[in-house]
Design a protein around this nucleic acid. Structure first.
Length: 298
DNA sequence: AGCGGTCAAGTTGAT
DNA sequence: ATCAACTTGACCGCT
């Protein structure tokens, strides 16, 4: 019933994604840089294929793709178009193979651009760069058949209402390759489910409900109520997030993730739903497998 | 071969 | 005013 998802990395399984830094890459000659980036992108496509197969073999139903799957792709000085890399065609073909394999094995793929990607900024330059990032992840999403690009609301700037209005107007202008995949997630500092639900309903954007963030930043709504209302925003299999606090509830830093999920943090109401739940835990695949065992044992 | 310093981006809140 | 935290290591370069 429930599809559990692994986020980006492995703890024990030897599947690695590689990256580089702008500082290092910028010191290389154009030819050296092309070679380096080609190698990294191709390596990452091959790792993604392994990740998909690992998930399938282990009963893990979803995998979140790291934002740096194509390292430095949208960097202002060092960014590049994949087709123009020397290994461009090979890279794209390998990603399309990932898509076929994910489809064959029924592994759901998603993206989660990091905190630099936000649509609420009053600065148009930040919005422009964010849209570039969404565009890049959408292109890879097209290749591999990922149906989700999930982001947070971004900054509040002391006026969340105005900020969310900006988010809405940017969303309405997005290219459909982004728009059809875009989802919004409540965070643990600024935007609660109560903040985001009206926007999600008005603009037809699904809400990724992170119950851990909701517990860190409550809004008076119950888990049950948010669950119901979040489900109603989805036109496809819903995606929710789960994690457990490292120091326990009520300690200084409830935002930090524990190695594993405490089964008591998993909402009862979710157990019978037809949903994907991404497991955000430092023990990665070990944590997903443990939660799966504990859910089955109930 | 091993280890430490460093890493593109934005915002918030602790100090 | 500065800086860690966010999702979290992985990389390069020095010894």
């Amino acid at each position: 019933m429930i599809r559990l998802g692994l986020c980006c990395l492995f703890k024990e399984e030897p599947i690695k994604f590689r990256t580089t830094t702008a500082k290092y890459s910028g010191r290389l000659t154009t030819a050296e840089r092309d070679k380096k980036l080609s190698e990294l992108c191709l390596h990452n496509a091959e790792s993604l294929l392994k990740a998909i197969r690992f998930c399938s073999s282990n009963g893990i139903g979803a995998f979140r793709v790291n934002s740096r799957i194509l390292p430095l792709n949208t960097h202002p000085e060092l960014g590049y178009i994949v087709k123009q890399l020397s290994a461009g065609n090979e890279i794209e073909n390998k990603f399309r193979e990932c898509g076929r394999e994910a489809s064959r094995l029924n592994i759901r793929l998603s993206f989660h651009p990091d905190q630099f990607t936000l649509l609420s900024s009053p600065d148009p330059e930040i919005t422009r760069k964010s849209i570039m990032e969404l565009q890049y992840q959408s292109e890879v999403a097209e290749w591999i058949g990922a149906d989700i690009i999930n982001i947070h609301g971004g900054g509040g700037y002391g006026d969340k209402k105005s900020a969310l209005t900006r988010v809405g107007s940017v969303i309405d202008k997005l290219d459909s390759v982004i728009r059809k995949r875009l989802t919004l997630e409540n965070d643990d500092r600024v935007y609660t489910p109560a903040d985001l639900l009206p926007l999600c309903l008005r603009h037809g954007i699904p809400l990724v409900y992170d119950v851990h963030h909701h517990r860190c930043l409550p809004d008076g709504m119950s888990v049950k109520s948010v669950t119901e209302q979040a489900l109603a925003t989805w036109n496809r299999e819903p995606l929710f997030h789960i994690s457990s606090p490292k120091e326990g509830w009520g300690k200084p830093q409830p935002g930090k993730h524990h190695d594993f999920i405490d089964i008591n943090d998993f909402p009862m109401d979710w157990r019978t739903l037809n949903i994907t739940v991404d497991v955000e835990a430092k023990a990665k695949e070990e944590a997903v497998l443990q939660l799966q065992r504990e859910l089955r044992a109930l």
